[in-house]
Design a protein around this nucleic acid. Sequence first.
DNA 1: TACTACATGTAAACGGTTACATGATTGC
DNA 2: GCAATCATGTAACCGTTTACATGTAGTA
Lengths: 185, 185
Amino acid sequence: MNNSTSFFVVLGLLDAGRKSGYDIKRIIENEIGHYYKISNGQIYPALKSILGMSYASLSVEKTDGKPDRKVYLITEKGSAAFREWLKKPVDYHNPGGNELLLKLYFGPQASVDDSIRLITTFREIKAKSLNTYDDIHSSFGLSPQSSLPDHYSYLTLRYGQILAQANLQWCDEAIERIKELEGKQ
Amino acid sequence: MNNSTSFFVVLGLLDAGRKSGYDIKRIIENEIGHYYKISNGQIYPALKSILGMSYASLSVEKTDGKPDRKVYLITEKGSAAFREWLKKPVDYHNPGGNELLLKLYFGPQASVDDSIRLITTFREIKAKSLNTYDDIHSSFGLSPQSSLPDHYSYLTLRYGQILAQANLQWCDEAIERIKELEGKQ
DNA sequence: TACTACATGTAAACGGTTACATGATTGC
DNA sequence: GCAATCATGTAACCGTTTACATGTAGTA
């Protein structure tokens, strides 16, 4: 839990400013819902554990009728832990491969160099996997009489190849864009 | 368990021919390891449950020294259950989106029509999501003075867009290829 | 001597999802 | 009257990962 993606997403949103659990849920749904989902069963235990680790302090705001708003304020310790996570290269084995997008969403809370480093590391891994796909591809020698399994395996290979290429394309575009951005700041 | 991906992968490999748990592990590692991982903690419980549901029968082969090989032979009931799973459109929310590749790997155990249907359904979903990305993209109006968060959100949007395009490209190529294949059979 | 391949399995932990509980307010 | 929004949370379940246990045979 205190080491999982959901934990750090919650922590990262607190790092961007004081929020309640409900705020966190809404923000995730509206801003990163395309590639990341979260449930109450993750948010509220995460907040509890964030408090327990002194990564945030709590202030309760009274409301009329509705339950009290429990607003969390990140501590320096919490902020440091988040920034450490943010710098760590993404786990390239993670299903969906969207941990990178998540970290990039937190880009404004990191340095430009760190964001670029994140993408270049990701790029290297994708380039390597594209190489292996290319190697297999060139050794495939699909003849018209080759077996059915071959043809279907070829399709899955092509998927890996095409997707890896698309990833590389995005990496290059993204790095260029961030560098441009840096020049204007 | 008896409804999970790992369960049906194991069942599908048995559908392709009698195998032991160890065989299954080796085959997954060698043939689909690029996009699907499995552990003993999934294979052996799956086999137990496959036996329990009468989806397979068991024959034990004596070996010299090594533990007995427990070889599983799929039943008609098991085969029917597998084919039903194979036809079901993939869960497009699944992380990694590789359930399709998995099902395509089992293409030789399905009809050409079913394989094509699998891909066209997938294509429709990707086309729809590309449309939403395009809509957001055109409403983005990134001005040079726009805030940092905007620029980073733009990158995640572009990722979705580029990857969706790559998926469509692959779908078209794959469908064409399968249709060609059909002509020659 | 040590590692790899063969071959079976289990137990605990982990991360996440689903579904529920409670309850006021606002708008159709 | 009903749905949606605001706002908190919990409990059970599910699928997967990690790490372990056991043991032989062949190879470097």
